[in-house]
Amino acid sequence: MNGVDTLFLLVVLAPLFVARWRVSLLGLAAQGVLLWYASGGSTPTFDDAWAFDLVDFLVLRAGLAPGLLYLAFRRPDVPDRNDVIPANLLAWMVVVLLVLVSFRFAGTMAPAGPESGRVAVAATSLVLGFFVLATQRNVFSQIIGALRIENAVALLEAHGEGAPVHPAARVAQLVVLAGAIGLYVWYLEALAARPAADHDDDPDVAVVPGEEAS
């Protein structure tokens, strides 16, 4: 496992245990920067692929997404603490188990070489993203979970071998990512602005209802 992958694993794991919403956003920004580095962005070629990666990883994932979410979530009534996974021993054990299973999975899929580490970290990030989504009902944490999953998929694809992607498809992908970020921010604001009676017991976020809610 190389340095970038190790750092990525750290920024994936740390915000789970440091239950602060600003740390979660910082983690997302760091993931964006590391994705850019992992895709070879630090050695500029100034071609289309390099420009697309710059916009995708640095502008959208490292800058726009955490920045806009920060602006949307920064309110006086929002407490600093925000658990993205339940703060208990069982949840921490599950995280450790998921990391172990992901590394085992990577050993099967890419038995040797540097790819094994990349796959292990991407798989870890993916399953932990799903774990966040599965355990959280507040919108902010669900957005964090969804963005973690998107970054994990990007890491899986960032293996630097330059698969042939049509420029139109790459542009469309950037538009989709920007659109998703825009909608995340819109929901964060719109759901928080709902009347207090419509909220769950969690004060700072709206709650997605279950089957009963129609």
């Binding site: 759901l191 209802p209 129609s214």
Partner: peptide, 30 residues
């Protein structure tokens, strides 16, 4: 009413589902 949270549920599930498809494309590319 609950239209906004329900639409959020729709959006979240759709986006996550389609991200799975994207992960599948990544695997196919490999």
């Amino acid at each position: 009413g609950d239209k906004l949270p329900i639409s959020w549920q729709y959006f979240l599930f759709s986006t996550v589902g389609l991200t799975l498809v994207l992960a599948g494309f990544g695997c196919l590319q490999r």
